[in-house]
């Protein structure tokens, strides 16, 4: 049995359009588009491009915030220091681990929640949506504290409620070991951002044409077959966009680690490393170089998703 999707609609140019020239109307539309998008574009340049360029520039210097007089040009020296340091590679590993685990679990959970929202009774739907969205509305630092308190050996309830689980005892020190710390960090991240992914998937689910479902039903397809052969193939774009956004977000994980372990037990992420060099050590040059490398990593992820998995951002918006 093959998957069923609607044939792509071809975007064809109107036959009457003259080749090579733009009509007055097209020109004025283009102008309007620039006028409408222009302010946003300028703001983006100001708040995104400017800091990125400044960080790139400063990453070429040996520059300590408290000692601006001794600022000196070191070229790519800062990058050399970072890339030859095992701590950098360890942080990359930890960040990739957290990203992979959280995004995968969130995708499955988020899909389940989206299905619940779609299938729920009309009367229940608004309440259900609000309830599912609450964690996403909580500030990350607050959620990190809440999870930390829950797992804390002194004030937490987890150790007393879950002693029946293997590996959990009254004196389990969750933040005293790398893997248990990472477990709690991942749990907090998953709890907080699953609603985001489920919202994106809900939009995708709504795009699956009802006619295809009905046709599959008439053909005698089971519920499971309809899910795998009709629903999922038709919302591939939405899934990929959800994955892309969450991966980019997860790769910059900082708040939860900062609150829960402050980087102890080898739980430093790349963002945390940037914070430590720039804010704590006041080494603006070295810290900027870490930030630039983090930026490049994020660009690489976006590139791999868009080119490698052929994610069409326009298609996801239903264009």
């Amino acid at each position: 049995m093959s998957t069923t999707t609607l044939p792509p609609t071809k975007k064809t140019a109107p036959v009457s359009a003259p080749k090579g020239t733009t009509s007055d109307r097209a020109r004025s539309e283009r102008k309007l588009a620039w006028l409408l998008a222009g302010p946003a574009f300028l703001v983006m340049l100001l708040v995104t491009a400017y800091p990125i360029l400044q960080a790139t520039y400063e990453s070429l210097f040996d520059y300590r915030l408290t000692d601006p007089d001794n600022r000196s040009f070191v070229g790519l020296g800062n990058y050399g220091v970072i890339l030859s340091d095992p701590l950098w590679w360890q942080s990359i590993g930890i960040t990739a681990f957290i990203t992979a685990v959280t995004v995968l679990v969130e995708l499955v959970l988020g899909f389940a929640l989206a299905l619940v929202m779609v299938k729920a009774l009309r009367a229940l739907r608004p309440i259900l949506r609000a309830a599912i969205l609450i964690p996403y509305a909580v500030i990350t630092v607050v959620s990190a504290f809440a999870w930390q308190f829950a797992f804390d050996i002194n004030s937490g309830f987890v150790n007393s409620w879950f002693t029946w689980l293997p590996g959990v005892a009254a004196d389990t020190d969750w933040f005293g070991d790398r893997w248990t710390s990472l477990l709690v960090i991942c749990l907090a991240e998953i709890w907080k951002t699953t609603p985001f992914i489920s919202l994106l998937l809900l939009a995708g689910l709504a795009q699956v044409p009802e006619v295809l479902q009905e046709a599959a039903k008439v053909d005698g397809a089971t519920r499971w077959q309809r899910m795998w052969r009709v629903t999922i193939p038709n919302m591939k774009a939405a899934i990929m966009v959800a994955l892309l956004f969450r991966t980019l977000d997860a790769f910059r994980v900082f708040d939860t680690i900062f609150i829960m372990t402050n980087g102890a037990n080898g739980t430093e992420s790349v963002s945390f490393l940037a914070y430590r060099q720039t804010i704590a050590r006041l080494e603006i040059g070295l810290g900027s170089a870490v930030s630039v490398l983090l930026f490049l990593a994020v660009v690489l992820i976006a590139f791999v998703f868009i080119k490698g998995f052929k994610v069409d951002l326009a298609q996801a918006r239903g264009e």
Partner: peptide, 15 residues
């Protein structure tokens, strides 16, 4: 104590 590696001034006072 079991949480020694996360023990701060405050949590050790609680202990």
């Amino acid at each position: 104590g079991s949480a020694f590696s996360t023990s701060t001034e405050d949590s050790s006072a609680t202990g």
